[in-house]
C-alpha cells in the first residue's frame, strides 16, 4: 500500500515506499545537475573528436589534432638535445684541460654533474661523494686507481670487479682465512701497518713492528708497494695516509687482513653515455679541488 506524504521540511512528496522506517522523497533532479552532466559529456565528445580515442578493430580514431604521445616524446627529446648542444658539443669535443679552463662550462658541469652523481652514484658513494664504510671517499687525493682524468674515466667505464670484460680487478687476499699467515705474523703486520699512519696499539712493541715490517715486505709489498704507498695499477690503497675504505682502527684493519676485501664498483659503459661519464669525471675532479 503506497502512502504519499509531504515532507514538512522540504515540502516534497515521498515516493510512497518505506523500508524499515526509511522513506524517500521524490525530489526532482535539480536542473544544474543536467547542465553539468551535459557539459561533461560535451567536453568528452569534443575530446574524442580531437584526440585518439575509439578502437576500430586493428586501429583507432586518430583525432583531428593528430596528437600522438610517442611522437611528442621523441620530438621533445630531439628538441632538448638541440638545446643542450651548445654546451654538450664543447664537452664532447674538447680536452679535459680546455674544459677546466672554461669557467662557464665548468658551472654547467657542476649543476649537471651533481644530479647525475645523485641519481647514479650517491647510493654507494654518498651525496657529497665522501663515501662510507666499504665505499671510497672520492673527494681526497688518495686514489686507488689513479686520479688523472683518463684513469677516473676508465674506472667509471669498466668498473671494479664488475661484469665488464675489461673490468679492473681488485683483490686484497684473505691472509688469515686462507691460512697464508699465522696469527702472530698477522698481529705483527697489523702493528706495522698501524704504525705507518702514526697509530700504534697500546701493547705493540718496537720488536713487533720490526717483525711486522719483514712480514709486509714478503707478503704485501708486491701490491701495496715497498713504501706501502699503494699501487694504482692493482688498486691497492696507500696504507700510510689517514684515508681508509674499510676503517683504520685495529679491529677493522685486522678484519681486512684476515678475510680480504673485494670492493665492487659497477661498470657504467652501457648505462651512461660517454658524455655523461665525461661530465662525471670533470665533476669529481672539480669536487676534489673544491674540498680541502
Amino acid at each position: 500500500m503506497e502512502k504519499f506524504e509531504r515532507d514538512p521540511h522540504t515540502g516534497y512528496l515521498t515516493t510512497g515506499h518505506e523500508w524499515n522506517g526509511i522513506i524517500e522523497l521524490n525530489t526532482p533532479v535539480p536542473r544544474i545537475i543536467y547542465v553539468f552532466l551535459i557539459a561533461a559529456v560535451l567536453f568528452s565528445l569534443g575530446y574524442w573528436v580531437l584526440m585518439p580515442t575509439w578502437p576500430l578493430g586493428t586501429t583507432f580514431t586518430k583525432g583531428l589534432l593528430g596528437a600522438d604521445q610517442r611522437t611528442a616524446v621523441s620530438q621533445s627529446l630531439k628538441q632538448a638535445a638541440l638545446d643542450h648542444a651548445t654546451w654538450t658539443n664543447l664537452i664532447e669535443k674538447e680536452g679535459y684541460a680546455q674544459i677546466q679552463g672554461n669557467p662557464q662550462l665548468m658551472e654547467t658541469v657542476r649543476t649537471t654533474g651533481r644530479t647525475l652523481f645523485g641519481d647514479n652514484c650517491a647510493a654507494c658513494h654518498g651525496r657529497e661523494a665522501k663515501g662510507g664504510k666499504g665505499f671510497p671517499n672520492l673527494t681526497t687525493n688518495a686514489w686507488l686507481w689513479g686520479g688523472s682524468p683518463e684513469a677516473i674515466a676508465e674506472t667509471i667505464r669498466v668498473g671494479v670487479n664488475s661484469t665488464h670484460p675489461e673490468t679492473r680487478t681488485s683483490q686484497m687476499l684473505a691472509f688469515g682465512r686462507d691460512g697464508m699467515l699465522q696469527r702472530p705474523d698477522m698481529e705483527n703486520v697489523l702493528a706495522y701497518v698501524l704504525s705507518l699512519s702514526g697509530k700504534t696499539t697500546s701493547d705493540a712493541s718496537a720488536n713487533q713492528i720490526a717483525a711486522g715490517k719483514t712480514v709486509f715486505a714478503t707478503n704485501c709489498a708486491s701490491c701495496h708497494g715497498d713504501d706501502a704507498k699503494g699501487k694504482t695499477d692493482v688498486g691497492a690503497p696507500d696504507l700510510t695516509d689517514a684515508v681508509w675504505i674499510y676503517g683504520g682502527d685495529a679491529n677493522s684493519v685486522y678484519t681486512t687482513i684476515w678475510g680480504g676485501r673485494q670492493g665492487h664498483m659497477p661498470t657504467w659503459e652501457s648505462r651512461l653515455s660517454p658524455l655523461d661519464r665525461k661530465i662525471l669525471v670533470l665533476y669529481l675532479i672539480d669536487l676534489r679541488k673544491a674540498t680541502p
Binding site: 533532479v29 545537475i33 553539468f36 552532466l37 561533461a40 559529456v41 567536453f43 568528452s44 575530446y47 574524442w48 584526440m51 585518439p52 580515442t53 575509439w54 578502437p55 583507432f60 580514431t61 583525432g63 596528437a67 600522438d68 604521445q69 610517442r70
Partner: peptide, 22 residues
C-alpha cells in the same frame, strides 16, 4: 598503454564526477 585507451579513461573519469557529486 596506447594513447587512445588513456583518452577514454580520462574522459570517463571526468564524466564520473557528476554522478559522484550527485
Amino acid at each position: 598503454l596506447p594513447q587512445w585507451v588513456q583518452s577514454l579513461g580520462m574522459t570517463f573519469s571526468i564524466m564520473l564526477l557528476i554522478p559522484s557529486w550527485v
